[in-house]
Design a protein around this nucleic acid. Structure first.
Lengths: 255, 255
DNA sequence: AAGTGGTCTAGACCACCGT
DNA sequence: CGGTGGTCTAGACCACTTC
């Protein structure tokens, strides 16, 4: 051998640990089952707790585990597919478990990045609608919708009472515009404190940030920034007439 | 000693640290600039290196920083938008920086999850085409394309030499089928060792996993599993005639 | 060889949940 | 209250890159 490297490259302990645990999850555990606590697990594998935690963090990132402070670590169900399709009826939203639920509506300055997309002055206040999306009774996404007052001129005179009621009227106005198209992007982020609270996660939890621009003939009418729980969600996109899997079908497959 | 009276707020140190660093990145650093090393930074902020690292990890996750072992920590450029659109000409791919580059083609068993989507027996070997996608000279994604032999019957007799040449001929056959649609999903994952190597990252690095099913009239013709670097990529989807931003435009905006 | 980030340890205390 | 995961420390050594 001499100068050549050892054939078995040294694999980090936490990586090997992750593999072992992953296989154990497949064979020895059922969804929802509680794992031994971190101190016991670390002792069983003969590693420090920090090392064990590094493996658990990876598995949680991959949606295999769910950890809750004060409770324990459980085996997570498969990720739920969430449709982020070219939704024609996006604003209204069905009454089923799929719906966006308006929570609040305020008037505020848009963040610089959003103002740039809207093509407005960043000091000009815009309508900010907060919506929550739930599936199977679980909150999966929190959204902030930014709508320049100029996009919904009818509303400026109304000045409805704040809260969900006003949110709905803004959405109604927006729906009335007749949107011509949209433009989406997805990237990884970490949950802000307010979003984390809505999603029942700790601040900094990994999220998929979906940014959508809504167009009318006049230009960008609104911008949405939606943060989806990365641990529990798989975003699905319906392309070119492909069959979009329905919620009911998913439930059947799961059972 | 333990905790000093760090304000009355119970904000974790690493979280506060992340905020401070993030603001410093905005004001005091240019893209590409090298930060002080972790030991110095930790000392400067009066925290343990592990705590400082927790903050850096978050910032790297958000695409603000780039860390390389043996080199240092640098300020990352804004994430590059990568089109994952309803690509009609997906198989061929232009010659520009946007292209998928075929690397290899083997015959192997598909993973169980892929076999399920293909609707084939998981023991039946399929063509496995490996492709790399690069933008601006940077590898951004690694893909495995699974194609049942039954989808490309013309090819079974040919048995071209392995490698990129065979990969290209398989893609050509697939292109000839006339695909009717596709079905995409995006989720968070961690890079396998082989993908990590292609993407110049460490194993376990966060990636966006884009799974695509390609349909013909007969059913699913192929399944692609592409892993994009989550730190450097923002996936963009062209919906319903929306303007897809071109690479050239992005470059102009960046400057 | 020197310097960087990556891994690992063995503790400690804190915040939160259930009982 | 006891038990859980979350944060934090002050070290140590390793793998890698660069000079």
């Amino acid at each position: 051998m001499g100068t050549t490297q050892l054939e078995s490259v040294q694999e980090p302990k936490y990586w090997h640990l992750k593999t072992v645990l992953s296989e154990a999850l497949d064979s020895d555990f059922a969804v929802g089952e509680i794992l031994p606590n971190e101190r016991d697990l670390a002792a069983r594998f003969g590693v420090a707790r920090a090392t064990l935690r590094q493996a658990l963090e990876q598995l949680e990132l991959e949606g295999r585990l769910q950890r809750r402070r004060g409770v324990g670590t459980t085996v997570a169900p498969p990720r739920v597919g969430v449709a982020v399709s070219t939704g024609r009826r996006e604003w209204t939203g069905g009454v089923g478990g799929e719906a966006w639920q308006p929570v609040d509506c305020t008037m505020d300055r848009a963040p610089a990045a959003v103002a740039a997309m809207l093509g407005t002055d960043s000091t000009e206040p815009v309508h900010v609608v907060r919506r929550i999306r739930a599936t199977h009774g679980q909150a999966v996404a929190a959204e902030l919708l930014y709508i320049p007052a100029s996009s919904v001129p009818e509303l400026s005179a109304i000045d409805a009472p704040a809260g969900a009621v006003r949110a709905r009227s803004v959405l109604r106005e927006l729906h009335r515009l007749g949107l011509e198209g949209q433009d989406r992007s997805v990237e990884l982020g970490s949950a802000r404190a307010d979003d984390a609270k809505e999603l029942d996660r700790l601040p900094g939890a990994p999220v998929l940030v979906v940014t959508t621009r809504y167009f009318t003939a006049d230009g960008t009418a609104a911008v949405s920034v939606a943060t989806y729980r990365a641990d529990t969600c798989r975003l699905t996109f319906g392309d070119s007439g492909a069959l979009e899997i329905s919620e009911e079908e998913q439930d059947r497959q799961a059972s």
